[in-house]
Amino acid sequence: MTTISNKVRYYRSDMAGAPVLSGTAGALISVLDACLVDGWDVRVINSLTVADGIATAQISAGHFYGEGDVIRVAGATPAALNGAWRLASVTGSTAVWSVAGLGIAAGSATGTITAMRAPAGWEKVFAATNTAVYRGLDVAGLRHFVRVDDTGTTTARLRGFEEMSDADTGTGPYPTDTQLSGGLWVGKSYAASGTARPWRLVADGRRFAIFSAPYYSNLFNHATFGDLLGAAAGDAYASLCSGPYSSGEAITMYTGQTPRSGNLPHSRTGNSTNGVFLARNGAGVAGAVLAKPIFAGSYVTGAASYATPISGDALPSEPVQILENDSTAGIPRGVAPQVRHLPFSAGSYEGLRGVPGDGLRIVAAHNCFYAIDLGANGKWD
């Protein structure tokens, strides 16, 4: 069994104990806190053994972890067993993962050992009432800041900053107030109520994407933040913030409606209502710039225009390239690895396609054609 990287981590609203996204103030921050910073669903591990490079945890009370999920183990001796692990297989009371090649001796661990659903590796730098500022912990990244204003009920606001000194003060915003005052939008619910709405989130320690279904349970909008993949060496501003451009677009996703604004695979124009912004242009001139997402396949407007997908696990998808749109042609800046374009209707394909830590997860139906990329061997970089 090969040890799979656990850098890219995936979360869903139907995981046991997951935080609730609803039309209430602070609900989005609860989701981001749990997925990015804190984790959740702590379980007592009754026994943890290593044999032939495979760790097996016995959880007598049962658990709800799934194949490919990432858990964080604490309290074990030897200490090398503590940390984050991607699960290779599970039953109702066991979780199994590889420790091959890590020098962990065979035998039984001791201590008061616990497991929890591991967070993605971010810190909550500043907070105020229903407002939070996050930053990725991966020191190889740009480590820009993302501010979430969750004081609203049905929607929240999202905006990147190059620097921040408290929950409300920062420099280098993207978008700027001139481009879109207050930042981009995230849809939570079509109604101001405590009714739970479906969500998905994928992240590593440098970027994330949050998918929400504020209206129908199978129509997802999404917003993204973080470093582009494959940016030129020395490009300190290849950080993306995207999302719906208005509160209406954030929540009114109807059957048959083509995704717009922050839905990156379909935002190809780079115009003022594109909802996709980079921190600065490639020359590093201060001030956010519009971005233009493109992909190899043709742009289409309805499910009838999509090809029939290949059966089984062979679901081809396309990376979303990000161009800075300072000119008509645009300047390539990198790839947004959090989401890929599917050139076909994926209405019945939600779920894992591929193997744990690799492949794709399809997250939406009808005209919302997204693939969450889990990364080759569990990592993007």
Rank of each mutant, 00 (worst) to 15 (best):
G136T: 03
A140Y: 01
G152S: 12
S212V: 00
T153D: 13
F225N: 09
A140E: 05
T151F: 01
D150F: 07
A192L: 06
D150M: 09
G187K: 05
R157C: 04
A191K: 07
P173R: 11
D227V: 05
L184Y: 00
V146M: 11
F225Y: 13
A223T: 09
D166S: 13
D149T: 09
T176M: 11
G187P: 01
Y190K: 14
R197V: 04
G152F: 01
L142I: 09
E162Y: 07
G194M: 08
G187Y: 00
A223E: 00
V148E: 02
L228P: 00
G187S: 01
G160S: 11
A167Q: 04
A209M: 14
N221I: 14
A196K: 11
R197H: 05
P173C: 09
G136S: 11
T176C: 09
G160C: 13
A156L: 08
D177P: 04
G141P: 07
H222Q: 11
P173N: 08
F145N: 04
E162G: 09
L137V: 08
D168C: 12
D138T: 08
T171K: 11
Y216V: 14
V202A: 12
D138W: 05
N221G: 15
N221D: 13
F161V: 01
D138P: 01
I210K: 08
Y215G: 05
D138F: 02
R147W: 04
S181L: 13
A156C: 07
L142K: 08
W199V: 10
N218V: 14
F225C: 14
D168S: 15
